[in-house]
Design a binder for these strands. Structure first.
Lengths: 340, 340
DNA sequence: CTGAAAGCGCTAACAA
DNA sequence: TTGTTAGCGCTTTCAG
């Protein structure tokens, strides 16, 4: 049977509330009895009942994690980083996956609220939708930290990569390598990162630093197949770009599949760069030049901000946000065709 | 504010218990009032408080998932499959990661028990250790389903791949392709799958179907670096095997890294096969011949068995276990050097 | 068929 | 400094 405060109280010969105080490290108790009680509690293997706690609306030591999907290694690693931080701080995780569906996102937010979680770490589906529900979370006292993406004008800290900087690094590199005709394989624009990365790319088009046609710029959904179709379409064009920027790891893998299927040689026939590194760059030939994110670190940061906010007891506002620089990794997927 | 049974009761003009009965679909209530109450509850956005529920030791609709690590895509996909099944059945997930540490495993089991979860889906660290704690789980009424691995002589269903069959397929294929001198890059033998796969491999050694020396058979930890070291050691031998069997995706990636570093051509200089498929086989050249597991399906099965056991209200015993066949995928990583 | 009331384990306000 | 007690929202006897 489970050990309750009552059991400890009986054993020590004090009241339940004394035990409660001892275990919550209250000041209103003598050091000696506290020591005694703590020892007995440990010996008996006491662990407070989270439900009884939760019912009293005190800290539940549970945080909700809300992600689009787990089978993208980016999110898996991010959650792994969070888990590390949260476990050390003795917090539990309730995991919800939205699969990119705003409806599921709403349901998940509801569930997390009803579980009375202390905080939520979220990578929201949509830049705008469900703002209402995130605010509802906040106003019911739950701390919130966004990661990878955020919802505009919700006052919560976010931990994101430097999307604009990353894309700029990539495009500037291509320019240095002599490329001007550059295509872009993007993602669904509801997603914050997709929007930011495209915007960064378009800046180069607008100011004439590169040349890009509408047909070279694509926005798929968040699946490999979309990237595949997009790349196939671009390859079928008479006037092709000499280089392609892939907006994330999923898109890149899709592109590489197509190149392989058609026997297209990288970088001889077309050059590519990618936002996101991937495991298979360890073995793929040529490995892809990219800007790498660090999802584990991102998760760790986000969780740490949240945990700190519990300690300080104030919600982490947007001013606590962190932007993580991406890391440029030059490899062999870009051909020099002029330039400096 | 949160909607409680009390609020619904007041609105409808009945007692709390009537509302409770209506919502739990009891027989002891008239159809008409039930209908009415259910409707009002929905309109008001009622969602039962999991803590109040949990405190009463009824179904919490929460299941614990216990895995070694999330940043291995195998487990990420398995959890993804579980999430799908559990979400449909309106169950929540508490996620615990052991990182291969039996101590953390014990702590996690304790946490899950204290959270009064209805069931646990676990890929245990060790084949023997912590048997006591899994039995403790069971005896406190929590349903348990193992996946990928299990703990011996704990009476709980498991969902695993056909490890022996998979390895046999791989080795027999190598034999057909003319290989006799075959090495094995294995994992830590505390892990159930590692043990099973090695056993299956050793059967071929013992009955003389293949020739293998002690130096060709390695057992690393569960990290890529161990596989790298193991492969390097084998390559440095004067008398090398002509083919290598890799015991999982992590080991395979480690091996490929080494081959790349030393410029070793697959399959010309050495042939390889692998337990587990991987994403990068879509783009790697040559893609690796392997037996693929289906982690998503494994997760789905495990979760389904657990959910069924809630319905039937009896713990899923070891007799409910499922063994999933692996899928052989012939690709280009093995050279024919004789044979049929 | 419905309502009143006890109690799950804990915290916190109030008494002593 | 300690003990007593109310009550968190729900389920479940037990009466009606």
């Amino acid at each position: 049977m489970r050990v309750r405060l009552k059991d400890i109280a009986e054993k020590v010969g004090v009241s339940i509330s004394t035990v409660s105080r001892a275990l919550s490290d209250s000041k209103m108790i003598s050091e000696s009895t506290k020591k005694m009680i703590v020892k007995v509690a440990r010996d008996m293997g006491y662990f407070p009942d989270p439900h009884a706690r939760g019912l009293k609306k005190v800290r539940t030591r549970v945080v909700g994690i809300l992600i689009p999907e787990l089978d993208n290694l980016f999110f898996a690693e991010a959650v792994s980083g969070m888990e590390r931080a949260l476990f050390s701080a003795e917090h539990q995780i309730i995991l919800c996956s939205t699969r990119g569906d705003p409806k599921k996102e709403v349901q998940s937010i509801r569930v997390l609220m009803s579980h009375n979680v202390d905080g939520v770490l979220a990578a929201p589906v949509d830049y705008k939708a469900n703002k209402k529900y995130y605010n509802m979370l906040l106003s019911s006292g739950i701390h919130l930290v966004f990661f990878d993406r955020f919802v505009s004008s919700v006052d919560a800290a976010h931990v994101i990569s430097d999307n604009e900087g990353g894309i700029s690094t990539l495009v500037e590199y291509l320019i240095r390598m002599g490329h001007r005709k550059i295509g872009y394989i993007g993602l669904n624009l509801r997603i914050y990162t997709a929007k930011e990365r495209l915007k960064a790319f378009m800046k180069f088009v607008k100011n004439g630093k590169i040349e890009s046609r509408d047909e070279w710029i694509t926005h798929g959904e968040y699946a490999m197949e979309d990237a595949e179709r997009a790349v196939e379409k671009i390859l079928s064009l008479k006037d092709r770009p000499t280089a392609l920027v892939f907006a994330n790891n999923v898109a890149t893998l899709g592109g590489l599949k197509v190149f392989r299927r058609y026997g297209i040689k990288i970088p001889d026939e077309i050059s590519i760069v990618s936002f996101d590194d991937a495991h298979w760059n360890l073995v793929f030939d040529p490995p892809v030049t990219c800007v790498a994110q660090n999802p584990t670190q991102m998760g760790l940061f986000a969780a740490t901000i949240l945990l700190d906010s519990f300690t300080s007891n104030e919600k982490p506002g947007v001013d606590k946000s962190v932007v993580i620089k991406t890391k440029f990794i030059e490899r062999g997927s870009v051909k020099r065709i002029g330039g400096v």
